Amino acid sequence: MNFTPPLKPARLIKRYKRFLADVVTPEGETFTLHCANTGAMTGCATPGDTVWYSTSDNPKRKYAHSWELTETAQGHWICVNTLRANHLVHEALLAQRIPELAGYHQITPEVKYGTENSRIDLLLQAPGQIKCYIEVKSVTLLQQTPLHMSPHQGFFPDAVTQRGQKHLRELMQVAENGERAVLFFAVLHSGIAEVAPAHHIDARYAELFCEARQKGVEIFCYGTTLCPDGITLTYPLPLTVTR
Rank of each mutant, 00 (worst) to 15 (best):
N86F: 05
E170R: 10
V187Q: 06
Q214A: 08
P127H: 15
F19R: 15
F155Y: 13
N2M: 10
T4C: 06
N177G: 12
P236G: 12
G230N: 03
F3L: 09
L142H: 13
A186M: 11
Y133K: 03
A193T: 05
H148Q: 12
L20D: 07
M172L: 12
D202Y: 05
M41Q: 09
L237D: 01
L147R: 13
P238W: 15
T82Y: 08
G191L: 01
R180A: 11
N81K: 06
Q162E: 15
C221G: 00
H152Y: 14
R84Y: 05
Y222M: 06
R97L: 11
V89G: 00
K137M: 05
N58I: 00
Y104Q: 02
Q96C: 07
I78E: 01
I78Q: 02
S54M: 08
L233M: 06
P5A: 07
V187W: 10
I201L: 10
H167G: 11
F31Q: 05
C79D: 11
A159L: 11
K131N: 14
Q144I: 03
L237M: 06
H34G: 08
F220V: 02
A198M: 05
T50I: 15
T234D: 07
C44T: 01
Y16W: 14
L33H: 10
S66H: 09
H76A: 02
L208R: 03
R213Y: 04
H167Y: 15
R84D: 02
K112L: 07
L168R: 11
T225N: 03
P146D: 14
L88Q: 01
I130W: 12
Y104N: 02
I78T: 00
Q106D: 13
T224L: 05
V187D: 07
E218Q: 13
I192S: 03
M172H: 12
G216T: 00
K8I: 00
E207G: 02
L239S: 07
G216L: 03
V89M: 01
P197D: 02
L147Y: 09
T70Y: 11
R243K: 10
G216M: 04
S150P: 05
F185T: 00
L183I: 01
L101D: 04
R163E: 15
L20C: 08
L171T: 01
K60P: 01
A175K: 06
P228R: 08
I98V: 14
L239F: 09
I78V: 05
T108L: 13
P5T: 02
I201T: 06
V51L: 09
I98E: 08
E176Y: 14
E116R: 15
L101K: 07
H148D: 10
T4V: 09
Q162M: 13
V241F: 06
A186L: 12
N117R: 15
P99Y: 05
T234I: 04
G223A: 05
V136K: 06
P127Y: 15
K112I: 04
W67G: 04
E211H: 06
L88A: 02
N58V: 00
P6K: 03
P109D: 12
D22R: 14
N117K: 15
N117G: 10
I130R: 15
L188D: 03
L124G: 05
E116T: 10
D57P: 00
I231A: 03
A40R: 14
R213E: 08
G75C: 03
L208Q: 03
L124V: 04
Y205A: 00
Y104R: 04
R169A: 04
V241Q: 04
R15A: 07
Q96G: 07
A73C: 03
P59E: 13
L171V: 00
Y222W: 11
N81H: 08
I231R: 02
L69P: 02
A206M: 01
